[in-house]
Every structure is written in structure tokens, then in C-alpha cells.
Design a protein around this nucleic acid. Sequence first.
DNA 1: TCACAGTCGTTAGCTTAACTAATGAGCCTG
DNA 2: CAGGCTCATTAGTTAAGCTAACGACTGTGA
Lengths: 144, 144
Amino acid sequence: MTAKRVPPAQLAPQLRDAITRLNRRVRQARPVGDLTVTQLSALTSLKLAGALTPRELADIERVQPPTMTKIVAKLEERGLVQRTPHPTDGRQVILAATAGGRAVLEQFERARNEWLADRLAALTEGERDTLRRAAEILQQLARA
Amino acid sequence: MTAKRVPPAQLAPQLRDAITRLNRRVRQARPVGDLTVTQLSALTSLKLAGALTPRELADIERVQPPTMTKIVAKLEERGLVQRTPHPTDGRQVILAATAGGRAVLEQFERARNEWLADRLAALTEGERDTLRRAAEILQQLARA
DNA sequence: TCACAGTCGTTAGCTTAACTAATGAGCCTG
DNA sequence: CAGGCTCATTAGTTAAGCTAACGACTGTGA
């Protein structure tokens, strides 16, 4: 387990390929249900942030405001998101996940993790430890 | 750097979070151009495999055959993919990336890798080595 | 040998998700 | 307090996915 010198330009394509492919697989393992990937993603961001305006949520999701309007409308229809007026600015709206929204989210989370957890269980301790360290570095990269 | 025991059920959410977030970031870094993500993905798979039937390509891309028909049609319009009849089976078609398709692909690849390569360059040698080993494990997971 | 069941790719028609442009309500500054 | 800006939404378009159905072709069993 000696550390090889790894040129970034060579690691980048390999890592990217691994990530995009694994991402597809994980997405496919999503359970049947009436929530789409987009809605799920928005609801997750909302839950993590606590409360956001549509604009902020759109920025986080890298989506245009009109798109977020539609996503939020669908989530609201199902009672997963609550829309309250902004206390001081009459133009703005405050979005927050309802208790129902948070519950649905946890259910999805569990199902989505299942596939991956099964695969991880088949690895060696050493491999899992490598992935654990890698996950930390990757999260840091994504934040940057 | 001692290997900690890592329960799969705990690693799964962390790894998944890291992967989905990083995946979003990498996708956002794609250059302006008239190729969509879907088309790009299909063209990449086709280039990697060399030559495939529509059905095979649809399976790889995890898409239904009619969807692949449309994707291929658009790629063919732009001259990036060539469609030739199967030598023995009159029902089948053989798809292959043209020289132009491969050239466009390399251009996109470079631009997409750039963002990630920049970030990777800022890491330590040890961190890059961890990611290299992780990438191998992840690719194996995605294949499973 | 040839009828027929199965496969392959495609077409048709629908839903969802994204975009840009335009609109209306509300805020704030000169 | 008028005009310009921001925020959210509406309207309309395009892309991407699906299922159902079809037409061409293959290959097998009687």
C-alpha cells in the first residue's frame, strides 16, 4: 500500500467516470413512488437548509426560478412543503419541509442507501476504509 | 492512517452524498455547446465500446429502446454517429462513432475534466492516492 | 418448406423537466 | 413619490423519458 504519485490530469477522468457511473446506478435503485428525482433532490436540500426562498433553493439546485416554482408547486400539492409569506418582504416566500415531507424523505433515503450498503458489505475492511477517507475528500471537493 | 472499522450502513449515506454532490458540480462545469448530457453520455459509451446495436447501447445507458432511437437520430443528424446494417441479421443495425464524433467527445472531455483536475491538483499526494484507490473500487461497484 | 412465434428497431403519443421571455407585485433610492 | 429593481409566477417551447403498437426480419417445429 505504498502511495504512488498520481498526476491530477490522469486521475480526473478515472474518478469522474467512476462517479458518474455509480451515480447512475444509485439513482436507478430508487424505490417506486410518486416522487421524481428532481422533487426528491429539492426536498432534500430544503430539509438540510431548514428554510429557504424559492430563489435560494433554485440556486442551490442549479435551476432557474421558474423551474423551481413548478417543483415546489408539486411538492406543496402533496403536502410535503409549506409556503409562508416573508415577515418583512412582501415579494418573497419562505419554503420549509413539513413533517410529512421529512418523513417521506427518510423513507426514500433508507431505500436508496440499501443498494449501496449491500455492495459495501461485500468489500473488505481495508477497501471500506479507503472509501471512507475518499468520501471525506470528495465532500470537501464538492464544497469548494 | 490506521484502518478503522467502517460499518457499511454508516458509510453508504456519506459516500452517496459525496458522489451526488460532486456529480452535480462536475456536470455544471460542462461547456456551452449543442450536445446535451444525454447525447454526450450515449456517444461516450459508444466510443468506449467501439460498435454496438441500438439495443445494446440502450441497455448500457439504462434507457428504453425507443428513447435510444431518438438520441441516436440526433447524433446522426450532426454526423457524430454512423449507422450501418448488420452483416448477417437484417433486423439489426450497427452504431459507431464517426471521426467527427470522437473529436467532439475529446473536446468535451477535456473541458469537463479541467474543473476536477484543478481541484485535484490542490490536494496532497496522499489524498490523490486515496482517491485513485477509491476510484478503482467505485468502478467495480458500479459494474456490479 | 413454410407458418408462426419471437426479436429488433422504429413510430406514435404521452408525461415530466428544463429553459427563456414576459408579467405583476412589492421594495427602495434619488 | 416616480422610476428602476427584485422576486415569484405564468406562458410557451424544447428535450428526454416512458408505454403501446407496428413492420421487417429471423429461426424453429410440424
